[in-house]
Simulated scan of single mutants.
Amino acid sequence: MDTIRAMQVFVRAVELGSLSAVAREQQSTQPTISKIVAALERDLGVRLLARSTTSLLPTEAGRRFYERARRVLDEYGEAVSDARGVSDQPSGRVRVSAPASLGVLRLNALVLAFQQRYPEVEVELLFDDRFVDLVEAGVDVAVRLGATLPPHVVARRIAVSQRLLVASPDYLARHPRIRQPSDLARHQILRFTWLASGDDIVLDGPGGQVLVSAPCRYRVNNSLAMRESFLAGAGFGMTPAWLVQDLLDSGALRRVLPRWQGPAQEAFLVCPTRRYQPAPVRVLLEFLASEIAALPGFTAV
């Protein structure tokens, strides 16, 4: 049995979810592809794929083997490129997980720019505000903002974003002037549902730290929705600078109490714990570390 060929077929079967799709991609036939996978299962002594009339999914053993097989194939591809003298051109696939709002607003453009620089690298960008199990999800790189990081991952802190109080000019014109933190109690605050501080606002500024409470009639769990709510004049709120820096620069939003700010939000690049990283993963990590830190509202660390 050609083990490398069998692993390639299995990996693509998992990724495409269909043996017929693999056959079409590789200009083969479904029975041929099925025989290759069956031979691999016999050789390993485990069932890798669970088949039904409507779906094809990896078994638990199949999921574990898929993750390792992908890494083996990536390293094999680099070895072949090195032997042919083309190792300076990274190629292969990278799977990236990122928070939805940062992904849509900023990261999507960065990935497209990355692919202009490295045309042989295929990127699959997944938006998910949950911290997924990187190995189980087959994720090579995750971008995470201010979250408690799980154990058994490699995390690199790349940037911070200050949390600012902001509101639209229209909102500020229609409501009492805010001169000091205690004035916030007379205003409507827009809040992220997941903030650990509850209804309190923690501010650092002249004279130290203060804790302020303000009435809230609207909570939302999506940063882009919060951004639109600020623009609509629905209230003021605390937000990381990366989400609104362009709106502050254009005047569409204004800072409230500009001498005060909340705890900074940290940005991390996270990878599964493993010694070997394929060339496409390495170059993407370096690209994202540099480019995210340079985005409006972020500061490099």
Rank of each mutant, 00 (worst) to 15 (best):
H175Y: 01
R70I: 05
V154G: 00
A50R: 11
Q116C: 06
I178S: 10
P119K: 05
E78L: 02
A79L: 09
I189E: 12
R130W: 04
H152E: 15
W260F: 05
A252R: 14
L224V: 14
F287M: 01
G235Q: 09
V281W: 01
L247E: 07
F10Y: 05
R275I: 11
L248E: 03
G138Y: 00
G17L: 07
M238P: 13
L269P: 00
A196C: 02
M226Q: 14
I189W: 05
L57S: 13
I33P: 02
L105I: 14
R47W: 03
S229R: 14
S20R: 11
I189L: 12
L49A: 01
N222R: 13
L211S: 13
R217K: 11
R93F: 01
T3V: 15
R106Q: 13
A173G: 03
N221F: 07
R64F: 04
V281L: 04
N221S: 15
Q26H: 12
G92M: 06
R71H: 10
G235H: 07
D170Q: 13
Q8A: 08
S81K: 05
R106F: 09
A21D: 15
G207E: 07
R275G: 15
L73T: 06
V160E: 14
F236H: 05
L172V: 09
L203G: 01
R63Y: 06
D128A: 15
V166Y: 01
R130Q: 13
T273H: 13
R24Y: 09
V14K: 05
R156L: 14
H187M: 10
W260Y: 06
M226A: 10
T193G: 14
V37W: 08
L172Y: 06
F236T: 02
V202S: 03
Q261C: 11
S28L: 09
S290W: 05
P278T: 00
P181Q: 00
Y276Q: 06
L149Y: 03
P280F: 03
L134G: 04
P99C: 06
D88H: 15
V281T: 04
A50F: 07
V22T: 10
D246R: 08
A6L: 04
D43W: 04
R63G: 08
A252L: 11
K35L: 13
G77V: 03
L105S: 11
P119C: 04
R274V: 02
P150H: 04
T3K: 14
L284M: 09
G233S: 10
I36T: 12
S20D: 12
E228I: 06
V301E: 15
A50I: 09
T59F: 01
A225M: 13
R84Y: 07
R95L: 03
D200E: 15
Q188R: 14
R144T: 14
L40C: 07
A159W: 13
R47P: 00
R24L: 13
A13H: 02
R163W: 00
I36G: 01
I4V: 12
A234W: 14
R227G: 04
Y118K: 08
V104H: 11
L211F: 10
R63P: 08
Q30K: 15
V132H: 08
E60A: 15
S161G: 10
R275V: 14
